[in-house]
């Protein structure tokens, strides 16, 4: 029988713990496929962050280091500086990257650290049960914003790609959304571009992936996809925010 489709070698056979309708699985698959296609699985080191994605160390078929909350870009820096020819990526959620780890990602980006950051933005702390994240939208109800996020009390959501794209060390920054097959394909293109720029040693790359959290949003899987498309992309416009992949940052 002719094989027409196979699971990527970039993922292990472990069964993930992600909830039904969560798009982490798609992001994992995209990263795994891209690493496989570039034939770099054997020299890749992934950094798992704290949050729902913490157990990604069991899912990616590469050497993995689990970092303290928010510190994945620094751990990745430590790995990359001593193994400059390896491929190093972090896989971080919004609480990890844009709240407790804001300093780490900003400075890794400013240094032009030659790593790739996969940033999952689902507007909530999934692992701890759906509290307000730095990316929670205004008026969005979470466990800690029961009447909706109030800008007077909670401030405004952070647009990570826009912020990081101001830094000289960033070679590539794109925001995509896993809200449709088209969005999935665009995400893969973005992830591919990010890793390609790392392989070519061009600087810091980040792909911000707008993702779902049906469990904590209290929506069905399909409703969640629509919510990403209607609500999230309005505040977080999709697109390429920085592309210096032709020349690199240095």
């Amino acid at each position: 029988m002719k094989t027409v489709f196979e699971k990527t070698k970039g993922l292990t056979d472990a069964i993930t713990h992600y909830c039904p309708g969560c798009t982490h699985g798609i992001s994992h698959r995209i990263v795994g496929e891209v690493l496989e296609e570039f034939e770099v699985l054997g020299k890749t080191v992934g950094i798992a962050s704290v949050g729902c994605s913490v157990m990604s160390y069991d899912y990616f078929n590469v050497d993995m280091v689990q970092a303290p909350h928010g510190r994945a870009p620094s751990v990745a820096t430590g790995v990359k500086r001593v193994l400059p020819d390896n491929i190093v990526f972090t896989y971080q959620g919004d609480g990890d990257l844009a709240a407790i780890g804001t300093g780490e990602v900003v400075h890794a980006a400013a240094r032009g650290e030659n790593i790739t950051v996969i940033f999952i933005n689902n507007g909530t702390y999934g692992m701890t049960g759906g509290q307000m994240a730095p990316t929670t939208l205004l008026s969005q109800v979470t466990q800690t914003t029961p009447k909706g996020r109030d800008k007077h009390n909670d401030g405004f959501p952070i647009r990570v790609c826009e912020m990081l794209s101001t830094l000289e060390g960033v070679v590539y920054a794109e925001r995509t959304a896993l809200d449709s097959p088209k969005g999935v394909m665009q995400t893969k293109r973005a992830v591919k571009k990010a890793f390609k720029s790392q392989i070519e040693k061009k600087g810091f790359s980040i792909v911000e992936i707008l993702s779902t959290c049906p469990t904590n949003w209290g929506l069905t899987a399909v409703e969640s996809l629509k919510w990403v498309e209607k609500e999230m992309t309005e505040y977080y416009p999709l697109g390429v925010y920085k592309d210096k992949t032709d020349k690199g940052v240095f």
């Binding site: 620094s74 751990v75 820096t77 430590g78 790995v79 990359k80 300093g103 780490e104």
Partner: peptide
């Protein structure tokens, strides 16, 4: 590093290799 915290996490990363 940009902070003591970041520095020790870089140590963690390098030590892991």
């Amino acid at each position: 590093a940009e902070s003591e915290i970041s520095a020790i996490n870089m140590v963690l990363g390098a030590a892991a290799t």
